[in-house]
Amino acid sequence: MTDQQKLIKDCLRGKPPAQRQLYDQYAGFMLGVCYRYTKSMEDAEDVLQEGFVKVFTYLAQYKADGELGAWIRRIMVNTAINYLKKHKRYQTELLFSDPALHPVSADNPEVDLSAKELAELIRQLPPGFQTIFNLHAVEGYSHVDIGKLLGIHEGTSRSQYARARALLISWIKKNDIDSKIESYARP
């Protein structure tokens, strides 16, 4: 029995030290996930807390053939989506527009930002854009899946993504230019 299997077994038995160990192992990374979907650290921690309660409640349903981290991550993403749906401040109307009007640009700039900086830029996207961008670009969900998850049309997801991507790229470029100007301005 591997250490992780033993850890899971102990968590299933409700042993607090094992639960704490599992939490410590994944909390940092999962908070990063929650952080990308929310607008404040408080909300991110709320999602993290709800997510871990679900993890421990439904741990018996975890099948050992998959990676535990990926399973927990899925729970966190779903918890985050539910959280956004529940709270009015995250509810924005996602209007359907023809994806053809907003084609995904072929622009693929170099991202010279740190993980935290990039995450901050993603969080500045409007809530709908932010969610769809995270789901597609980071989690790798297809637009069909995103449509099902958010209850929107697949085309809406595509067009919103294209607009989110374009917006983010423009910010990244601007950020790049600003940082270059700043570096030139230094004595």
Binding site: Q19, R20, F29, R36, Q49, F52, N108, V111, A115
Partner: peptide, 30 residues
């Protein structure tokens, strides 16, 4: 999709430290 790959990679590196109260709340709910 190089942009997406870069974003994905960067985001995989993102790790933050939750405050201690999060675990306390989890424990309390459990």
């Amino acid at each position: 999709h190089d942009f997406e790959k870069q974003v994905h990679q960067k985001m995989e590196e993102l790790q933050l430290s939750p405050s201690y109260t999060v675990w306390e709340r989890v424990e309390e709910k459990l």
